[in-house]
Design a protein around this nucleic acid. Structure first.
Lengths: 178, 178
DNA sequence: TTATATTACTTTAAGTCTAAACTATTTAAT
DNA sequence: ATTAAATAGTTTAGACTTAAAGTAATATAA
């Protein structure tokens, strides 16, 4: 996960000679800034994720992917097809199958075949699953809240907006890729 | 990875009645903002990570953790102990061992026992590893740069600063935990 | 209609990751 | 010096993740 670039190069690599270039890395200031944003982003995400994982394990004896499935499934009253789960969770299809298998075993969710399309399985919360989620959800919020408690509210709003800009930039770049 | 909270609750959960609370989630505006920051952060991190992983595989037939190890090892001329690698990469100790094993097999790094402390193994780049990294590093930068190309430079600087604030907030909260 | 492509999901093999238990070594405290 | 505690690294079992290949069902197109 961590992805910290070093000089990333042998001593031979020279600066590009342009203003704002860095002798060590051969990157322009803009390029360096981008990399630093990426690394800081990753560090923050890792720190938060680590805390959430630890608390889910310690306090609810579960894992983040399991919590994610429950939270996702709960987003729509009629449950969701597997493909929708994998799309929302940003993981591959093959990942979801065994994850859902285990949650079904534990009677937290169930699979209902779609009446319209026999390929589709709708995943829904069981009563058990709902209860579990109702306990976990506020705790999860409070953990995140706690980690950001020292962040000034104006800064928080701005950060949220800027992350939106970043997201747009990424999606634009990915769209142009194709 | 994705961690999208839904209503996360049955219909029974009521708003907390305070100004700015949300009937659906029972979260205050501040709490909602924090969760939204977290989710957006995670989305951005996932999008970038996914692109980097895909490009590492397609163009260099390698993986992100492998690249991370090489980049980390390169940061200090005399290599680094395993514990330092795991600390910097924010993964557990047990993760590093097989990862390093595979890279040693491929002759990209080597393990040198520390002369001072017989428990310690210093991990260093081989000439092969240096060459590989020298090819990968600029490519890696350009991928990230590309994803952020549509981000205004002022916004980028601000985002970097705010992520710093967030990081501090998280670390403060974690410190208080202990 | 019939062939072709697409879609939803599962399976497989291999890599990554974690927590926990373990070994070997070093450090600290008596 | 001897014991206890801490540290570096490895190993283990299990969960998660991916890409790629496979199966079944649906949609498209000729």
């Amino acid at each position: 996960m961590a992805d910290i670039p070093s000089s990333g190069t042998s001593k031979q690599r020279k600066g590009n000679g342009q203003p704002g270039s860095d002798y060590e890395t051969g990157l322009s200031e803009d390029e360096q800034l981008d990399i630093r944003i990426w690394l800081r982003l990753l560090t923050c995400a890792n720190l938060i994720e680590r805390r959430v994982r630890k608390n889910l394990r310690d306090k609810f004896n579960t894992t983040l992917p399991r919590f994610d499935v429950l939270a996702q499934v709960d987003r729509t009253p009629d449950g969701q097809p597997m493909r929708e789960l994998s799309r929302r969770m940003m993981v591959t299809n093959g990942n979801i199958t065994p994850l859902v298998d285990r949650l079904v075993e534990d009677n937290l969710i169930r699979r209902d075949p779609s009446p319209e399309d026999r390929r589709v399985q709708h995943v829904r919360l069981t009563e058990n699953g709902r209860q579990a989620l109702d306990e976990m959800f506020p705790a999860h919020s409070s953990w995140v809240n706690n980690l950001m408690a020292n962040l000034d509210r104006d800064n928080a709003s701005q950060l949220y907006a800027l992350l939106g800009e970043l997201k747009t930039s990424i999606q634009t770049a990915e769209r142009d890729e194709d």
